[in-house]
């Protein structure tokens, strides 16, 4: 290490100019100032340098200040998201027309059992593809009334608020040929019991939110898929 330091010092020494050489260079530089009739070359030189330095410093500070103040009133930019997941910032919601709903029903016949269907779709704005289709509907059985939200997942990178609540659902049942994983998640604002459930058939992953007054989740499963 010491050898290395010595080498560096030696290099630094080599790069320093002898005073005489330096003086000549500075004297030559100051000729222009002398022509203006100012005798204090060094001083003027210093002042000249100082003006440039001050100008540069002032300019830099001004620019930094103006940019900082201007940006201060704006929204902060989003930090880099380190993976491919996305959420609210990257989707727009559109209402689906009857034709589109019919196509969904063709693909997922159980949806036909719902009434008062309203369907929307979240479009991933980056490539204009559907990220999620959401179907809201109702179902009435002899014992209970159900409000149903079906989220059909098209892009698994779309992280909506309760996405996490659908992972690792602990309970399971099979209705008809459809395996269902589910969990009760308490009551909603309308005092309805809420269940989160997932089904995945023919490669179509659906997140279900099932709200009902009597808590008859398995009855819903049979009515929907049985």
């Amino acid at each position: 290490m010491d050898r290395f330091r010595r080498k560096i010092r030696q290099k630094l020494k080599e790069s320093q100019k002898p005073f005489e050489v330096w003086y000549r260079e500075q004297a030559g530089e100051s000729v222009g100032v002398t022509e203006e009739g100012r005798g204090a070359v060094k001083v003027k030189k210093r002042i000249g340098s100082a003006v440039w330095l001050i100008a540069a410093a002032v300019a830099f500070i001004m620019l930094v200040t103006v940019v900082a103040v201007a940006l201060g009133g704006r929204q902060q930019t989003a930090p880099q998201i380190p993976d491919f997941t996305f959420s609210d910032e990257s989707v727009r919601t559109i209402k689906l027309d009857e034709e589109s709903v019919s196509e969904i029903i063709d693909d997922i016949p159980s949806v036909k059992k719902l009434s008062n269907i309203i369907a929307t779709q979240c479009i991933y704005i980056v490539d204009d593809t559907p990220a999620l289709t959401m179907i809201n509907g109702e179902m009435q059985t002899q014992t209970d009334f159900y409000l149903i939200t079906a989220r059909i997942i098209h892009n698994k990178n779309f992280i909506f608020l309760d996405w996490w609540e659908y992972q690792d659902l602990p309970n399971s049942l099979t209705a008809g040929d459809t395996p269902i994983r589910y969990k009760p998640v308490g009551k909603n604002d309308s005092d309805m019991q809420v269940f989160f459930a997932t089904t995945e058939t023919d490669g179509v992953l659906i997140y279900w939110e099932v709200s009902c007054f009597q808590g008859q989740f398995s009855d819903w499963g049979q009515a929907m898929f049985g």
Partner: peptide, 16 residues
């Protein structure tokens, strides 16, 4: 150079 320096100062100070 002085003139240039002052000009630069004024120019850069304009955004203020």
């Amino acid at each position: 150079k002085k003139f240039a320096a002052l000009s630069m100062s004024v120019l850069f100070a304009l955004p203020a």
